[in-house]
Design a protein around this nucleic acid. Sequence first.
DNA 1: CCGCAATATACCTACTTCGTTATATGGTAA
DNA 2: TTACCATATAACGAAGTAGGTATATTGCGG
Lengths: 108, 108
Amino acid sequence: MKRTLTPADLARVAERFKALGEPARLRMLDALRGGEMAVSELIDLTGMGQANVSKHLQILHAAGLVSRRKEGLFVFYALADREVLLLCDIMCDRIERQADPDRLLGTA
Amino acid sequence: MKRTLTPADLARVAERFKALGEPARLRMLDALRGGEMAVSELIDLTGMGQANVSKHLQILHAAGLVSRRKEGLFVFYALADREVLLLCDIMCDRIERQADPDRLLGTA
DNA sequence: CCGCAATATACCTACTTCGTTATATGGTAA
DNA sequence: TTACCATATAACGAAGTAGGTATATTGCGG
């Protein structure tokens, strides 16, 4: 197991995790599970403002988590690869395992 | 694959990713790979300020990423489980795969 | 050409977060 | 008890970020 990440690499890793660290962006990634979507679809689906959705998409794209494809007036975004979902699923599994007992106790 | 995360769960997932979204905290988690460490060791090892290290540890602990153990004057922190490292490794692998060609091409 | 539709960007405000210094808490030893 | 050590917390300023409105860009149709 190599421990040879440069500070720049470390910053890049942090950038990606930070991009995943917003509920709004997680919702957008979840919406993209079914396949690519145009910005307007994401706006409609999430109920968020247009400028806000666009900015979040830039952040996700800068982090390499989503890909872009222009087609006429529309821009379609898609998950960059399967690992993005893998990360989310691992984290969600942790949440579900820890949240379930809480919910039973009414701690939520 | 269930898509039944409540908004509260979504916020919890985001909280955890956000906790991973800081280079300083990633360095601390990396330092904990070898096993539990006292706060003063982390301070010494990372060169960060004492108050800063303590605050970052509270964030990691609140996110459930590290565990605590008090022993006399010392408090030892350790990785909460193996999945924490799994997440980091997945992300690091992505970085290494994407960073290497960039470096060769001088695109960075 | 003009006007419109989809997306991106600039700008602003409120809020959060990082890092530091100073102080408080808890535990140990003399 | 008092002094000291390790850790936590408070308080502060600087910097970043989310979300909104307004505006710019880009591509299409008339």
